Amino acid sequence: MTGNPFLDALAWLTDPVHWSGPSGVPMRTLEHLGYTVLGVLVAALIAIPVGLLVGHTGIGKGIAVTLAGAARALPTLGLVTLFALLLGLGLTAPLLAFVVLAVPSLLAGAYSAVETADPATVDAARAQGMTEWQILAKVEIPLGMPLIIGGFRGATMQVVATAMLAAYVGNGGLGRYIFLGLGSQDYPLMIAGSLLVIALALVLDLVLLVTQRLTAPRGALPAEN
């Protein structure tokens, strides 16, 4: 121990002992990544179809925007605690909270993607006899794919940053280091856990940013979400 919490955290991270076993960094990282992916995917199954429908038809846009805004304002820790009290300890409570947290970005990305499709291109497709479903699937979604990926990017960043709360109700993930450090006043351990969460978030953000740019229509830059 050097007496410097940050240097001690770096020493903890470079100690091979902490990189093996069921409580090692790789396993905790995989758990954290799993919580993030599961939360975002479940949210996407709900938000993406609704967002595409709202964007294509314009029906219920006001309600969707209001609900998305309200969901953004909900405190994640409060949700985890509430769901844990209602459902008990385990993965269900934090997963529901992560889904609620991810829905707004995914919903906004989906309906914005369809809304921003070039009207002239959509009208041309309609004039060629395409059905509304074909217009959505073959014109609006491909043109708006960067915004949809942007929605995934925003949702992923929000969930990966709060997935540490899974450890608050007895689960794993990188949050275990933070809460263990908090309980024992081991500040280097808390810093190490925080650095690992930041590193995972940066990697995921880079992957999704590259994907967002690759899905942009040729000659266009992807809009930031």
Rank of each mutant, 00 (worst) to 15 (best):
A161H: 11
P16F: 00
A192D: 05
V114Y: 06
T211S: 09
A120E: 08
T76C: 12
A113I: 03
T81Y: 00
I46F: 09
L82F: 05
G154V: 12
F98H: 00
T121A: 10
A84Y: 12
P119Q: 12
A161E: 09
P22S: 05
L204N: 03
G150M: 13
L89R: 10
L91T: 14
V169W: 02
Y168M: 11
I46D: 05
V122T: 15
D118T: 00
T2D: 12
H56F: 00
L136F: 04
L196Q: 06
A71T: 08
L45N: 05
G150S: 06
L208G: 05
I149Q: 10
Q185S: 12
G154T: 07
A117R: 11
P49Y: 02
E31D: 12
G51N: 08
V65I: 13
L101Q: 07
L45P: 13
G51E: 03
R126A: 15
W12Q: 14
A47M: 10
S184R: 14
G60N: 14
G183S: 13
P217K: 10
Y35T: 13
V37C: 15
P222V: 05
V114R: 03
K138R: 15
G55W: 06
L41P: 07
G24K: 13
R72K: 15
A11T: 13
V103N: 14
Y187H: 08
R213K: 10
W12D: 10
L96W: 09
V17M: 08
Q134Y: 03
V40F: 11
L200K: 01
V37Y: 12
L209K: 06
K138P: 07
Q158E: 09
D186H: 05
M164V: 13
P16E: 07
F83E: 06
G90W: 07
A71M: 15
L33P: 03
L143N: 13
L38R: 09
Y168W: 14
G21D: 01
P75N: 04
R153T: 11
Q128G: 01
L107G: 09
L74C: 10
F98W: 03
G173T: 06
A97D: 07
I178C: 06
K138E: 12
A161W: 10
V54K: 01
Y177N: 06
T92R: 02
G34W: 01
M190F: 01
L45T: 10
T215A: 07
L189H: 08
L52E: 02
T66D: 10
T121Y: 12
N171S: 14
L189P: 03
E224S: 05
L30R: 13
F179R: 15
V114C: 07
M190D: 03
A9H: 06
G90I: 01
V169G: 06
Y177L: 07
L52A: 07
A166D: 11
L101N: 04
L106T: 02
V54S: 03
L206V: 11
A220Y: 14
V159G: 03
I63S: 14
I59Q: 11
P75I: 04
L86A: 07
A70C: 05
P26N: 08
G3E: 00
L221V: 09
L195D: 04
T116I: 00
V42C: 03
A73N: 10
P188G: 04
G39P: 03
A68E: 00
E140T: 01
L136V: 12
Q158I: 11
L7Y: 14
S23W: 15
F98T: 01
L13E: 03
L204E: 02
T215G: 00
A64C: 05
G175F: 00
G3V: 06
T156N: 09
L33C: 03
G173D: 04
A73C: 13
A166P: 13
